[in-house]
Design a binder for these strands. Sequence first.
DNA 1: CTTGACACCTAGTATTGCTAGGTGTAGGAT
DNA 2: ATCCTACACCTAGCAATACTAGGTGTCAAG
Lengths: 106, 106
Amino acid sequence: MIGEALKGHLDLLLLSVLAEGPAHGYAVIESLRQHSSGLFDLPEGTVYPALHRLEEQGLLRSRWQEDSPHRKRVYHLTAKGEETLAKRQAEWQRFSKAINATVGIK
Amino acid sequence: MIGEALKGHLDLLLLSVLAEGPAHGYAVIESLRQHSSGLFDLPEGTVYPALHRLEEQGLLRSRWQEDSPHRKRVYHLTAKGEETLAKRQAEWQRFSKAINATVGIK
DNA sequence: CTTGACACCTAGTATTGCTAGGTGTAGGAT
DNA sequence: ATCCTACACCTAGCAATACTAGGTGTCAAG
């Protein structure tokens, strides 16, 4: 349904959701689904590796939460993550503006 | 600069430019650069294969223009291409709306 | 007479999201 | 008792696609 359109924009989405507050992977998926009215119904195989990648880049950090029956890895933004989020937001605005300018040319 | 962000949206751009009127590959590149204020400065290795792909899918048709010193392959939208453009435009609107909804959640 | 703009092409690469499979707990339905 | 669904995590391999880097050729300007 969304096809390849998401490529290059997933980081922005994940960082945006986690800017709301710490969350674990499954909750991130849920949050994306709700904020997008069901359009971003991402498979786990998309989200988990992406979160790992962002953590490896130092944009996120995680800790295990063992108390609940289901073990959860809770992610939170680092300072670098917040900076990157701001950068990605600005990039998105320039990008979408350029697309709109090109599309609305007739 | 634009990185992987373009993936999945290139077709929309190409179809949009050609909806203005027939054009050859080099002119399409020029047009994209202008409409995007320089953001979409796409290499030929991106645009030419994409045009071939769109023609193969029946969204474009092309004919050689031999009169000028530089041989040009001029592309024009087919009926199917116009339909697809409308579809892609609608998809883009849903997509960008969903991104904006997710990004602006703080 | 070489550089740059115009104008086309393609093989191979890298990134990235997704598919498809796996592990395990818990609760409700059959 | 058994199955299915939701929750919650993981990863190897696949597929799509934009890009890199190279190639061909004309023509004007320096």
